[in-house]
C-alpha cells in the first residue's frame, strides 16, 4: 500500500500553457490503440483534483501564469510535474518574447523534461515512467 500503487495507476492532467497544440496532439496519440497507455494504468483525467501527474505543454504565456500556479496548487499530494516539449523546457522559439513568463520551471518545480518539437508518444510515456522512478527515490530518502 502507498506509493507502490502509484506505479500502476498514474492519473494525468494535461495543462496547456500556451502550446501550439503540437504536443497536445502527441499526448492524445499516446492514448490511441497504437500506444495505449491505459495498459499501464495511465489515464487522462478531467480535473487537477484527481491527478497525480501534471503534463504541462507550452511556454507559459502571461495570461496562463496564474492559472498554471493555481492548477499546481489544486493538485493533491504526492504530485509530479512533467514538461512536454521544447517550449515548456526552454521556451523554444518564443525565448525572451515579451508575453512569455516561462519556462515552466521558473514558476513550479518540474520533475521531468521531455524534449522534442513535438516529442514522440514513446518519449512522453518514458518521461512519465521516469517521473514515477523519481518519486520512488524520494520515498527511499525519507
Amino acid at each position: 500500500m502507498g506509493i507502490d500503487a502509484l506505479k500502476r495507476s498514474l492519473w494525468v492532467f494535461h495543462v496547456n500553457a500556451g502550446s501550439c497544440n503540437g504536443c497536445d496532439i502527441e499526448i492524445v496519440a499516446a492514448l490511441t490503440p497504437r500506444y495505449d497507455v491505459e495498459r499501464f494504468g495511465i489515464k487522462l483525467v478531467g480535473t487537477p483534483r484527481h491527478a497525480d501527474v501534471l503534463l504541462v505543454t507550452g511556454p507559459v504565456t502571461r495570461q496562463m501564469k496564474d492559472k498554471l500556479l493555481r492548477v499546481y496548487e489544486q493538485t493533491p499530494e504526492p504530485k509530479l510535474v512533467v514538461v512536454v516539449g521544447n517550449c515548456g523546457s526552454t521556451c523554444g522559439v518564443f525565448y525572451e518574447s515579451y508575453n512569455i513568463e516561462g519556462p515552466v520551471d521558473k514558476l513550479i518545480p518540474v520533475d521531468v523534461y521531455v524534449h522534442g518539437c513535438p516529442p514522440r508518444p514513446e518519449a512522453i510515456i518514458e518521461g512519465i515512467a521516469k517521473a514515477w522512478a523519481k518519486l520512488e527515490k524520494t520515498k527511499v530518502k525519507k
Binding site: 502507498g2 506509493i3 500503487a5 500502476r8 490503440p33 483534483r49 497525480d52 489544486q74 499530494e77
Partner: peptide, 25 residues
Amino acid sequence: MQSRIGPPILQPIIDIKKLLMKENI
C-alpha cells in the same frame, strides 16, 4: 473492442489503493 490491450483486470483496486494515500482536499 477498440483493439487496445487495456489495463489489468485488477486496475480499479490499484486505483482505489492509490486514491486512499492521496491528499484529501
